[in-house]
Every structure is written in C-alpha cells, then in structure tokens.
C-alpha cells in the first residue's frame, strides 16, 4: 500500500510537469501581451499532428519532434501577424471571440487535411520500456523523460527571461509597452517572437504528450481548460506560478482520483463510494481553483490586480 502511495505521488508530480509543458507557453503569451489565447490548444494539436505525420513518414520520432516545433512556431507566426496583432489593444472579449473562431478554423482545417480518424504516434525506442524505482515500483522511462523535459523547459524559461536580452525586453514589455517602444525596440517583432515561442512550447507539449494520448482533432480542448486553471492558480504571467500551479493541480487530481473513492469506502458501500468518489474527484481541481482565488484573488504568484 505504501509503495503504491509513493508511486501515485510520483504520478501526481509527473502529471503536473506534463501540465506545465502545456501551460508554460500560455502563461508566457498571457503575461507579456495580456492576451487570452483560447487557440493555444490548437497549437498543441498542430504540434502533435506534425510530429505524428513526420514520424510516420521518416520513421523517426526525433525528426517529428523538430517538425512539431517548427510547425507550431510557424502557425504561431502566421496567426500572430494575421490575427493576434490586431487584438492587443482590444478588450478580453474580442480576444476570446477571435481565438474561439481560431479553434473552429484549426480543428476543422486539420480534419479536412488529415481526416477524421486519430493518428498514430508512439514513444521513441530510446525511451520505451520501464525502470525499477527504489521501493520496487516499475515506472515507464518515458514518463521520467517527460519530467526531465518539463524541468528543462522551466529552467530554460527562467534563464531566458532572467538572463538574456530578449528576456529583458520581455520583462520590459510586461511592465510597459509604451516605454519599450520609446526605447527603440521593435515591439511588433518582439511580440511575434514571443508568440512564436509560446506556440513552439505548445507544439513541443503536443508532440511529447501526444505519444501517450490520442492524436486527434479536439485533443487540445481539455488541455486548454486545464492549462488555464493552472496559470490562474499560479498567477497569470508568472513562470514560477505556472510551475507550482501545475504541480499542485497534478497532485490534487491524481491523489483525488486515487484517495477519494478509498476514503469514501470507509463510510459507504463500495460501488457508491467509487462513483461518488470519482464524481468529486473530477470536480476537485475546480474546487481548488475557486479556493485559491477566494483566498488570493490574483493567484499564488500573480501581481496585485
């Protein structure tokens, strides 16, 4: 029982890091440009499809991964120049509607090109198989690789924003867009670059997470909602917040699914315990979000509104 408990803790952490992969790009775009991008899930889908198609064509997951980064970044650049650029000065409402429209376009466009059936995408041979963890549990190598990738992305983002010139500009852009324009920085290009970076992160997440899931049209939507929950809990625009929010949500969800039916079975019969327990578990992360925002209306690490 105890080793199962430990394994579930690791699962919770792993699912949190997976969420962070998805949420990092969203929070970057959100923080810098103040843009609600509902189409972030579509970019995630683009990444997964690009990886699946190229991997099937060339037989190499790694080429697929490169393709997913490029395809998502390219889609991001196109979307930014054609649509998003016109929305920065609009209110959130217009952004919601426009990116809602983008979801329809991406989803049906993808279905038009690739058909209505899910695509195949599998874990690369290098990362297939399992390892025995201390404590005896068998754990898929690929899930450990996801943890590593997520932590790398987190570290990369911290370095990028804290230590590079682009990072300085991004931070300046978050603070005051008029000021950086006055400093002679081409703000249009900066925003295109940031949006493309956010899109590439979404595409990377799509390729990685797509190997464990179904690569199909609409795969981005549940992810999108979860990613929003994460960045709102963490505080919008904060990379640290997104990381901690992700892990909090991952833990809450995994442990809730595991423990709630068990806990309820001590007070009621087994079958109603499993069904009530899982019903509660599916509501749990939203309850967590409401609770966090009730106590801290700007999220855990958000700037005061």
């Amino acid at each position: 029982m105890f080793s199962l408990f430990l394994e579930q803790m690791l699962n919770g952490f792993q699912s949190g890091v997976m969420l962070f992969l998805m949420a990092s790009g969203l929070t970057l775009v959100f923080g810098v440009m103040g843009l609600i991008n509902l189409a972030h899930g579509s970019l995630y889908m683009v990444g997964a499809f690009a990886c699946a198609v190229v991997a099937a064509w060339t037989g190499s997951f790694w080429l697929g991964l490169v393709a997913s980064l490029m395809a998502a970044a390219l889609a991001g650049v196109l979307v930014e120049i054609l649509v998003i650029r016109r929305l920065y000065r609009r209110d959130h409402l217009d952004q919601v509607l426009a990116t809602f429209a983008l979801i329809l376009i991406f989803s049906e466009g993808t279905r038009w090109i690739f058909g209505s059936f899910p695509l195949f995408l599998n874990v690369p041979d290098l990362l297939a198989g399992t390892v025995i963890l201390p404590g005896g549990a068998q754990y898929p190598i690929f899930r450990l690789a996801i943890i590593a990738a997520g932590l790398l992305v987190a570290a990369g983002l911290f370095l990028l924003i804290g230590k590079t010139r682009l990072g300085t500009r991004i931070r300046a852009g978050e603070a005051d867009r008029e000021m950086i324009a006055a400093l002679g920085i081409n703000i249009d290009r900066l925003y295109t670059v940031v949006f493309a970076l956010g899109a590439a992160l979404a595409g990377l997440a799509g390729a990685f997470v797509g190997t464990t899931q179904s690569v199909q049209v609409g795969m981005g939507e549940p992810v999108l909602i979860l990613a929003f929950v994460v960045i709102v809990i963490g505080g919008i625009g904060s990379i640290k917040g997104a990381l901690i929010g992700s892990i909090l949500v991952g833990f809450t969800d995994t442990m809730g699914r595991f423990l709630l039916p068990l806990a309820l079975s001590t007070v009621t019969d087994a079958s109603s315990a499993t069904s009530i327990g899982s019903a509660l578990a599916s509501m749990l992360i939203y309850i967590l979000m409401a609770l966090v925002l009730f106590l801290r209306p700007s999220g855990l690490f958000g700037a005061k509104a």
Binding site: H92, I225, M283, Y286, I287, L293, P297
Partner: peptide, 19 residues
C-alpha cells in the same frame, strides 16, 4: 468570483461552470 477581476474573473466563472 467578484473578489477577482479581469482574466481571473473570466477563468473562475469558467471553473464554477465546469464544477
């Protein structure tokens, strides 16, 4: 929800509906 504002308000209302 009205304790929050802006994007937080958008998302917390969504969270209640999802619940």
């Amino acid at each position: 929800t009205l304790r929050t504002s802006g994007v937080y308000f958008i998302m917390i209302t969504l969270a209640f509906a999802q619940m």
